[in-house]
Each structure stands twice: as C-alpha cells, then as structure tokens.
Measured scan of single mutants.
Amino acid sequence: MEVRTIKVFTTVDNINLHTQVVDMSMTYGQQFGPTYLDGADVTKIKPHNSHEGKTFYVLPNDDTLRVEAFEYYHTTDPSFLGRYMSALNHTKKWKYPQVNGLTSIKWADNNCYLATALLTLQQIELKFNPPALQDAYYRARAGEAANFCALILAYCNKTVGELGDVRETMSYLFQHANLDSCKRVLNVVCKTCGQQQTTLKGVEAVMYMGTLSYEQFKKGVQIPCTCGKQATKYLVQQESPFVMMSAPPAQYELKHGTFTCASEYTGNYQCGHYKHITSKETLYCIDGALLTKSSEYKGPITDVFYKENSYTTTIK
C-alpha cells in the first residue's frame, strides 16, 4: 500500500517557510505537534488534498525554529505562539472599519479597549522592536488589523473576551517599542525636605499616572512627601515624541487643539466601556464603527496623549 502524501510549508514567522512532505494517514499533531492554519487549530486533523502548498504555523520545537521565533517575536515564552494563534482565530472574524481616516474595530468580545489602543497607536510616533509587531502594525494602518490585535493580546497575556485596560495595554506595548531616546527629568520640591531631581528613561519617561493635564504637570502637581507634608512635583525636561497622561476616570474637559487623542471610560472596574476622542479640525468621538463630532467635550476621561518633541522648564 502506497503512502499518500502532500507537500506543505511549516513556519513560526510566515517569513521562513520549511518544506514538509506530510503523510495523509496521520494527523498534523502526530507529525508536527500543535499546528495552526489561519489561526485555526488543526492539530487533530489529517492532511487533505486542499492543504497542498498551504502554510501551517507550528510551535518552535527545534533550534532553527526557536531562533526564527525569537528573532521575529522577541520572546522565548513557549506558550506565546499558541496564544497568538488562538487569538487570531477570533480577531480574523472582527470587522476593521476605516473611521475618520483611522483603522478602528467594530465592537465584539469586549474589544473596546483594543480599538482605543489601536486608534491611539496610529496617532503617536512609535516604532516597535519585534519585527512581528512592526509588520502587523503597518498592515493594521492599511486596514488589516487582525494579526496586530492578536499579537497585542498575546504580548499582554490576554484572551479574547476578557476586559482590558488601555493604560495597561499601552504599557505592555511600550515595553516592546523603541523608547531608548526618551528621557524625563522631574523635580520634587518640599518646604521641609528641599528639592530632589529624578531622571527617568524609556517607558517611565512617557507615562504618568495622577493627572490628565500635561500643562498642569509642567506647572506642578501636589504629591505627598515622605515627611508627610505636601510637596510639588513638576516637569523639568521632556525628550520624547509623545507623552501619555493618565488618571482614574473623572469628568474632564478636553479643549480642541490642546491634545492629540484621549480615552474615555464609562462604567466601573468590573464592567465598563471605552471610547476614543481625537482632536482634528474639530473633536471626534470614535466608538467602534461609530463616529460623532463636537466642538467641545466633557466626560469621564482616563488617558490623554500629547505630541511632544523637546521641553525644558522655565521655572527657576
């Protein structure tokens, strides 16, 4: 009895394709271990004539594949690729409408935090270190965002349907971005203890939790000093293409032309909904596939993004 075979390709990165001759009487799992086709788990399936010449994702289970996976995804987590594939199996079914010149995501599976993050990423200057993220990001900007969303979920250790947080998501993504040249110098002034300067680099240099107003941050924000008295913390120097200011959701007025974009969060910790506000020729609110415009805006804002380049204080 002759062994019926077909020729397929296996890959971990969709760049390096490895030619395989597979036995049609055995499952993919018996031949390769966990195997995925377009995100779908085909591990328990036997090869079919229609699979001839198709590319299958496999887990990096030998040295060659491990090197290829690390170079593309910059992670050695053995569960990463499987999590990416199972997320992709959902995100490829989502709709990605162009809204006001940006790629958004039609609401499904509690994905409003991903839509808000995706919209924000198209408006701030950011370059990702893992080629996987950078490639998928370019495709997302062009309207094909399924891979990018699935990668975000995998890097953030999230599953489809789980509630997510924009600030946490951005923080994970910033860790995989090139923020080497970003720098922030802060000064804390206390009447009792004097003053202390701190220099922050990388992710810490672009994120701040405690106030939404970048102007206020430049002037000074009140913080408790270690001595128990009130101290003032203010920005001395900022070198970065953008800054992200966050605070627990509270009524906040966004003035046209003073910011790049913002995240609105309605609801409580267990259950809520994100919308995205962007400042173009007027203010726009993007909620999944829905767009509304207004000249002014007041609502429960939790993150505001500002364009920056270089700032030095005039406070002496």
Rank of each mutant, 00 (worst) to 15 (best):
K92L: 10
D180Y: 10
Q196V: 09
D165R: 00
Q31F: 14
L114Y: 00
T159F: 08
P131L: 05
C225N: 00
S310H: 15
I45G: 12
Y269N: 15
Q195Y: 09
E308N: 00
L153Q: 03
D41E: 09
T226I: 12
P300V: 12
T11D: 06
L118S: 03
S25Q: 09
P130D: 00
L126P: 04
K229S: 15
N100Q: 15
K255A: 12
K191S: 14
L65M: 13
L173W: 00
D109C: 03
A132E: 03
P60W: 10
M209E: 11
Y72V: 03
N14D: 10
A150P: 04
S79Y: 08
M245I: 03
N100R: 12
S213A: 06
L88S: 04
F259E: 01
I301R: 03
D109N: 11
T199N: 04
F174M: 07
S263Q: 02
F217C: 05
I105Y: 07
V21D: 12
A146G: 06
K229T: 11
N187S: 11
K95L: 12
K201Q: 13
M244Y: 04
G210D: 03
V21P: 10
E215C: 04
N61H: 11
A140K: 02
F148H: 04
K158G: 02
Y252E: 00
F174H: 00
I286M: 00
Q237L: 12
E68G: 03
F70K: 09
K191N: 11
F305W: 05
D38V: 09
S86K: 13
A289G: 09
H273Q: 00
R4W: 10
A231L: 02
T10S: 08
L133Y: 05
I15T: 13
L121N: 01
T302D: 03
L283V: 11
Y96I: 06
W107A: 02
K92Q: 11
T313S: 14
Q196S: 13
Y234N: 03
K106T: 12
G29D: 08
A247E: 04
K95Q: 15
K233R: 13
Y252P: 00
T116G: 12
L102A: 08
G164S: 05
F174E: 05
T312S: 11
K307E: 10
A115E: 05
A142I: 11
K44P: 11
S79W: 10
N187L: 12
P248D: 15
A247H: 02
V42E: 02
T116C: 15
M1I: 04
F70E: 10
